[in-house]
């Protein structure tokens, strides 16, 4: 029968100390919305659960020389932040659609990222916002661009004795707009069938795409960037046929390895990428204009 020890460090040093002490016997838990379900389903638990919930110092959304979001920030905090809504719109789109209010009240950004599900809602937006993960372990801090963070389904570069501390998003989003589409069968309590995040940087007159980033979830074993589609858009004048072509590229095998699952067939997922890359690009562009 499952049994475990439940430890609740109150600061980062304690947490890292405990991780070091218990090594592979321990697992981290933040909001618990993934971990508790997994323990219940598999009837297996690590010997020790190290809870990060009391690390209240890691719950923050700040803007100073870039955006800093503490790993323990809940989805609900992101949803209710006007800063996130107006400047990191895609992340706001995503956070406000995770599960339900109850889940968002406890589920954390760090948990969502470190759980590394191919369907992680916040991963796509953070990828297009060019976020960097800040990890801290016994050897100190290191920074890993999010695009290099996911190594496989439910796998990341985080070492067993490291804690994700925050996500950093570079400054200068002045001419950027972003949007995220979570394709689902109903409006709440959902995982995305496919997720599409787009960030665009537009010229002063809003006509030209200076920079573009596109990320997809459930389109590969990990959340991914659709580089060929991004490259296609860069420098182009924003227009329907241009965006349509970006959608085509993003949905092609050049960008993703979409598969059929019980939840949805591959052809339909591809279709949604094709349709929603342009729609999200337009929404992102709209948001640049409205800032």
């Amino acid at each position: 029968m499952q049994d475990f020890e439940y430890l609740m460090p109150t600061n980062l040093d304690q947490a890292i100390g405990l991780l070091k002490k218990y090594e592979n016997k321990a697992a981290l838990i933040a909001g618990g919305t993934d971990v508790m379900v997994k323990i219940g389903k598999t009837r297996k638990a690590p010997d020790v659960l190290i809870s990060l919930r009391r690390l209240s110092a890691l719950r923050y959304i700040k803007k100073n020389g870039g955006y800093h979001i503490g790993a323990l920030t809940t989805h609900r905090m992101l949803e209710q932040s006007t800063l996130v809504q107006s400047e990191l719109s895609a992340l706001h789109d995503a956070a406000s659609q995770v599960g339900s209010v109850q889940i968002r009240n406890v589920g954390t950004l760090g948990g969502n990222i470190c759980n590394a599900a191919p369907s992680a809602d916040t991963a796509g937006p953070l990828l297009v916002l060019d976020a960097t993960a800040v990890l801290e372990g016994p050897l100190g801090r290191r920074r890993v661009p999010l695009k290099e963070f996911f190594t496989g389904t439910y796998r990341t570069v985080r070492k067993p004795d490291e804690v994700l501390v925050e996500m950093e998003i570079p400054e200068d989003l002045g001419r950027y707009g972003s949007a995220y589409w979570k394709h689902t069968r109903r409006k709440a309590m959902e995982l995305p069938l496919i997720g599409i995040a787009v960030a665009l940087k537009l010229s002063q007159d809003n006509s030209q795409i200076l920079d573009s980033r596109i990320a997809l979830t459930v389109a590969a074993p990990t959340p991914i960037r659709a580089y060929p589609a991004e490259d296609f858009l860069k420098g182009k004048v924003i227009a329907d046929d241009v965006l349509k072509e970006a959608g085509r590229i993003a949905s092609s095998a050049d960008c993703c390895t979409i598969r059929t699952s019980l939840r949805c067939e591959a052809w339909y997922r591809e279709e949604i990428v094709r349709v929603f890359v342009p729609r999200m690009a337009k929404l992102a562009a709209e948001r640049v204009k409205n800032r």
Binding site: R185, R186, K187, A188, M189, E190, L191, L262, R263
Partner: peptide
Amino acid sequence: VRNGRVMNANFRDYKMLTAKD
């Protein structure tokens, strides 16, 4: 149901509508 087995035995994958729908 696939080969006799129920594949979506939970509320996440069995799509009852929510208050938002």
